[in-house]
Amino acid sequence: MSATRFRVLPRNTQPHAASINWNQRFDKLFTIALFTIPGFSIFLTFLLIPITLTARYSLYEWKGFGDLTSENYAGLGNYQRLYEHDVFHQAVEHTFIIMGLSLLIQLPLALGLALLVGRGELPGRRFFRTLLFIPYVFSEVITALIWQYVYHPRNGLANYTFEKIIPGFESIPWLGEREYVLYAIFAVLTWKFFGFHMLLYMAGLQSIPKDLEEAARIDGAGEWNVLRFVTLPLMGSTIRLTVFLSILGSFQQFVIVNVMTNGGPFYASEVMGTYLYKFGIQRFNLGYGSAIAVVLFFTTLIFSILYQRFVMRAEQEIAR
C-alpha cells in the first residue's frame, strides 16, 4: 500500500531520479565486480579454462606436444576407445570395490572408534584419540612407502608377524599376488583415512545434546537402543558427509596405489586415477588422457550434484 503511494513521487522528477538510479546501479555493479573479480579470475584460470581445454584435447589424438590440427581430430574416438578398453573396465570395477569396502568397513570402524574415544569415560581415551589420528597426518607418499616395507615379500613386517603368530604360515607376497593386492591396498587406505572420519564423527558426537540420551535412558532404553534410536539418527548429517567424502576419495585415489604397485601386477590394482596416469600421461596420449579426465570429472560432478540434491537436501528438510 505505502509502496504504491511513494511511486508517484519519483515520476515527477524522473530524469534526475533516473540518473541517480543509474549511478547507484553502476556503483552497485562496480562494487559487486570489485568483490567478485579476484575470486572469479582464480576460478576461471584454475578451473573453468583448464576444464574447457581438457574437454577440447579429449577430442584429439594428441601426444601432448605440437599443435592441435584437423588431421589428428578424432571426434569421440577417444571416448569410444575408453568405453571398449577392458583395462578401464577393471579400473572402474576396482574403484567401486574400494568404494564399497570403504563404506562397509572403513566408516563403521571409524564410527565405532569415535564412540569409544570421542566421549565417555574410557581411561586413556585422549591418548588413543591422538594415536588413532596419527596415520592421517602422514602424507600419502610416506604412508605408501611405510606400507611397502610392511608388505615386503622377503623381510616385511606383515609376513614376519604372521609367521610368529601362526605356526607354519607361508609368507605371502602381498603386493605381488593378483588376488590379494587390491585388498592389501584397501587395508592401507583404511589405516590412512579412518582417523579423518573418526575426527568428523567425534565432532558430530559432541554436538548431540546429552539430555536427549539421558531422557532415553530414564525412559528405560538400554545402551544399544540409545545408540540405535537417539545417537545415530542425530549423527545423520555427519554420516552423510563422511559417506560423501569417502565416495569422492575413492574416485580420486591415486598416490598410494601408484607408489605401492603402479597399478600392477598386470592391472590387478589399477584404479581410475592410475589408469589415467598410465594410459594418458606415461604413454604420451594426452588426448586420450583428457578423455579419461573428462569422464572422471563428469562422474564425480554428477554424483556430487545428485548427492547434494537428494541426500543432503533430505537432511535439510528433516531439520525443517
Binding site: H152, P153, R154, S171, P173, W174, L175, G176, E177, P265
Partner: peptide
C-alpha cells in the same frame, strides 16, 4: 625367480 619378485623393485 626369488620369492615375491612381482612385488620387488629393481633396487631390491
Amino acid at each position: 625367480f626369488q620369492e615375491g619378485h612381482l612385488a620387488m623393485g629393481y633396487g631390491d
